[in-house]
């Protein structure tokens, strides 16, 4: 299936309101969905007979900075049997970045979401084990945010990069 067919299929099966807009400029082409619909759409994409998008390749968090005041979550999906692909984007508010976890659908989401939580501070509902994964547990702040101020000393070690 190509991108237009996938979008049409989602719209006829789930409803028009589930896809806010599309981004044809992105590669793979992207659909933009609401945060509260994410799990429902992903569940449909994974289980539907015609789409059968079984592989969640990459989860990316993104901070648009204090001026835009938004954060984004980007999911790159691939179907192994049908060889079609899709990017799903979700926009979140920067004050309270909360989104539902996909751990119930893909177990690979576990560590990748922990990484996003670690570096961006986006909170995942229903995540079984939301701890920091790469940074030390007692580190201050979320390093990949655009307005991140690194702490000057960490246990007497000068922090500079």
């Amino acid at each position: 299936m190509n991108f237009e067919q996938i979008v049409a299929h989602i719209k006829t099966s789930l409803g028009e309101e589930f896809i806010l807009s599309t981004d044809e400029n992105a590669s793979p082409k992207a659909i933009i969905v609401k945060a509260e619909n994410l799990v429902e759409i992903m569940d449909f994409l994974q289980k539907d007979d015609q789409l059968y998008i079984d592989s969640l390749s990459c989860i990316t968090g993104l901070d648009n900075g204090p001026e835009a005041n938004t954060m984004e979550m980007i999911y790159n999906l691939y179907s192994i049997p049908f060889n079609h692909h899709l990017m799903v984007k979700v926009e979140l508010s920067r004050e309270k970045p909360v989104i539902d976890s996909l751990c119930g659908l893909w177990r690979t989401a576990d560590w990748q979401e922990r990484e996003v939580y670690d570096l961006y501070g986006i909170h995942f509902n229903n995540h079984p084990d939301l701890r920091r994964i790469l940074m030390p547990a007692d580190w201050d702040g979320f390093p990949l945010r655009k307005d991140y101020q690194e702490q000057e000393y960490y246990r007497g070690i000068k922090v500079e990069y």
């Binding site: 400029n25 992105a26 793979p28 390749s57 990459c58 790159n76 984007k89």
Partner: peptide, 16 residues
């Protein structure tokens, strides 16, 4: 201006 995802086969698996 665009979003882009590339993946390739590494000895260990898919690098994106």
């Amino acid at each position: 201006a665009q979003d882009f995802y590339i993946r390739a086969e590494n000895p260990k698996g898919e690098t994106g």
